[in-house]
């Protein structure tokens, strides 16, 4: 699944399935070309973290294929992990460790670990090297994880809700770091988040997951152009037309909903249309009434 003809995919997920109790990740496929940032969005419990855990071999897949740097992720697990930086949504270091202990603990796993870069990043994030992890706020812990993920100069960053717990200034700093990281066109970022305003600043591609299924995976602009918010009076639409809307909602003076532009011609011309945004798309799909693909 190549999105750009000449650019190789840095990450490729094909027909990935996994059942976990009542939740199922169903036939998930998407690809991230080299040199781009992909936003991975969906409501809580949509399957974002499960997909990332499958990539990291934290969960065993039931079906499907994951290729990172063009290599099968289990067969070349060690080589692949040497080249990726990961930030998950919860800190995963020993509470009693200082920033220096963390460096001692993980640096030996990476041939490209750069001590001075680590120190620079700690300074940039205002983290004291001798401070223990348990003395840090959640936001500071997330910054530390970002610093660790970037220090070995990874080719692919996998970020699972990295901005949760960060204030607006810190989020902006992170976006700036990602922008600098992406100046090297051989790199890529998979950025899972539900704070979609961050993605509007940096993402090139968006993959929308809902209830374990991929609904959309395309460029940010294509996705925003594809869906429109429609509004109008209560008696304007027939039942069939209402069924075309995603997240159809009625209120005292009218209705609103999301529509695929391709279906817009089936609606009356008097209907009001507005551009959509990622939040709107995510919320409407979560409300239901999606079109089966």
């Amino acid at each position: 699944m190549n999105h750009t003809a000449n650019t190789p995919n840095i990450l490729e997920v094909n027909h990935l399935s996994k059942r976990l109790g009542t939740f199922a990740l169903d036939d998930v496929s998407f690809a991230l070309p080299q040199g781009f940032i992909m936003g991975f969005i969906g409501e809580n419990g949509a399957g974002k973290t499960t997909t990332i855990k499958l990539m990291l071999n934290m969960l065993a897949k039931d079906k499907g294929e994951i290729k990172i740097f063009g290599q099968e992720h289990l067969q070349y697990e060690r080589e692949i992990k040497e080249r990726i930086g990961v930030v998950m949504d919860s800190p995963y270091y020993v509470d009693a460790w200082t920033m220096l202990d963390i460096e001692h603990a993980v640096s030996s796993f990476y041939s490209k670990w750069d001590h001075s870069r680590y120190m620079n990043l700690l300074e940039h994030f205002s983290l004291e090297p001798k401070k223990q992890l348990k003395a840090l706020s959640r936001g500071m812990k997330m910054k530390l994880m970002v610093a660790v993920a970037l220090t070995h100069d990874p080719d692919l960053l996998i970020l699972d809700e990295p901005t949760s717990g960060l204030d607006a200034v810190a989020r902006n700093e992170l976006m700036e770091i990602l922008r600098i990281f992406m100046t090297d066109e051989r790199k890529g970022v998979l950025f899972s988040t539900h704070i979609t305003s961050d993605l509007e600043k940096v993402a090139d591609y968006i993959t929308l997951i809902h209830k374990g299924r991929i609904l959309e995976t395309q460029t940010k602009d294509e996705l925003l152009e594809k869906y429109l918010v429609v509004k109008g009076g209560l008696n304007l639409l027939t039942t069939e037309q209402r069924q075309m809307l995603i997240g159809y909602r009625e209120h005292s003076v009218g209705f609103d909903g999301l529509i695929d532009c391709a279906s817009l011609r089936h609606l009356p011309t008097s209907i009001v249309t507005e551009p959509s945004n990622f939040d709107e798309i995510m919320i409407r799909f979560n409300m239901g009434g999606e079109i089966d693909e």
Binding site: M58, K81, E82, I84, P91, Y92, V106
Partner: peptide, 21 residues
């Protein structure tokens, strides 16, 4: 105990190691 309390399983899965390693 420390591994479980501090979610170190996640850390291990980000490092260049196979599960058997």
């Amino acid at each position: 105990s420390i591994q479980e309390k501090n979610l170190l399983d996640t850390l291990y899965c980000t490092l260049s190691l196979k599960r058997s390693n």
